[in-house]
Structure formats: structure tokens, C-alpha cells
Design a protein around this nucleic acid. Structure first.
Length: 173
DNA sequence: ACGATGATGAAC
DNA sequence: TTCATCATCGTA
């Protein structure tokens, strides 16, 4: 059975949700066609004290979505070129999100959004059929020994302590 | 190793 | 209003 994950799943501690996202499916529906990719790489950005999290410098028009309810997408533009897809986690008022970096055979967050046709129009959208983009539990059991935790990519600016946090989660078959 | 390419936020 | 920075990728 394929269960669409709802707010209940995302409204939990960010690191827990990040670990649990491995093996879940990112599903995109466009013109009646479904594309489903198994999530295998994510990064957690957890709260105002996380110096790598965009919300660490307060609530701004860009980061406002992260302060909202869990289960919505935070999509932003970086390096003048790429769109990044995140899903908001945790309780309302607590800014946190998870960057989806890889799914299926697509490696790299920018390649993933390009492949699925995701851009700013998905920012603040709910992860649900109504938006054409959601996440499903398809019953995959991920053996713990096939997962890894490493520091996050490209966050040296956050300082030694936060850059070293093992907030990147990988699932390799 | 580096340039592309533009939104963002902080400083002035 | 200007400027440095940036959760990356493709080409070299």
C-alpha cells in the first residue's frame, strides 16, 4: 500500500524525519503522468541556532515558509542557477527543513529539481496531490546498516561546529 | 579549478 | 544603492 505522508509525519524532530525519509518516495504528477523516485540522500537544517540553516538570521520573506506548518515545501534559488527542494518539519514557529539531495538515480539537489520541473511555483505548496508533488511511504524497509550519516555539503560558512554536524543522511543499496 | 548567473541580506 | 555571498553543476 502506498500511503501519502501528511503533516503528522513531518511534524516531528527534524533529524528523526530526515532519517525516516530514506526509502520513501518523492512523487511528481504532471499531465496525469506519475514519476516516483526513492529518496536516498537528504540533509537536515534544524532551527534558529543551526548556523547553516537559512532561518538562523531570523524570519525574512524568503525563509518565512520554514516558520510555518510542517509538510510544506521550501524552494529557493541559489548560485543564480539552481532550485533547491526542501520540506518543512517541526512545529509551527520553529524554523526547520530537510533538503532533498538525491532520489532514484538522480544525484544532486539541482539535478533533481531540474528533472522533476520544480521551481519557485512550488514554494510554500503543500506536499499533497493538490500541488502535484508529494511523498509516499511504499512500504520499503531500510536496513539501518545501509544508511550513513555525514557532515552536510557546502556549509563551511556556518563555522566549524555547525559544518561538522552529521546532518546528512544517505541510503546506499 | 573555475565561471555561470541572480536573489538575498547586510552595510553604507 | 551597492556589494559579497551562496544548501551547485558542467566544463576543463
Amino acid at each position: 500500500m502506498n500511503t501519502i505522508l501528511s503533516k503528522t509525519f513531518f511534524n516531528r524532530p527534524t533529524l528523526t524525519v530526515a532519517q525516516d525519509l530514506l526509502g520513501k518516495y518523492l512523487v511528481r504528477q504532471v499531465k496525469g503522468q506519475l514519476v516516483a523516485l526513492e529518496i536516498n540522500e537528504v540533509e537536515a537544517y534544524d532551527g534558529p541556532s543551526d548556523r547553516a540553516c537559512h532561518a538562523a538570521r531570523g524570519k525574512t520573506p524568503r525563509t518565512a515558509v520554514m516558520f510555518g506548518p510542517a509538510g510544506h515545501f521550501y524552494v529557493y534559488f541559489v548560485y543564480g542557477v539552481h532550485w533547491m527542494l526542501n520540506i518543512v518539519t517541526g512545529r509551527e514557529g520553529y524554523p526547520a527543513a530537510i533538503l532533498i539531495r538525491g532520489a532514484g538515480n538522480i544525484t544532486g539537489p539541482a539535478r533533481l529539481t531540474k528533472f522533476l520541473g520544480i521551481d519557485k511555483t512550488f514554494n510554500a505548496a503543500a506536499a499533497a496531490k493538490s500541488s502535484g508533488l508529494w511523498i509516499e511511504d511504499r512500504g520499503v524497509i531500510v536496513p539501518r546498516h545501509l544508511t550513513q550519516r555525514t557532515p552536510r555539503i557546502g556549509v563551511a560558512y556556518a563555522g566549524a561546529v555547525w559544518a561538522a554536524k552529521p546532518y546528512r543522511f544517505l541510503y546506499t543499496k
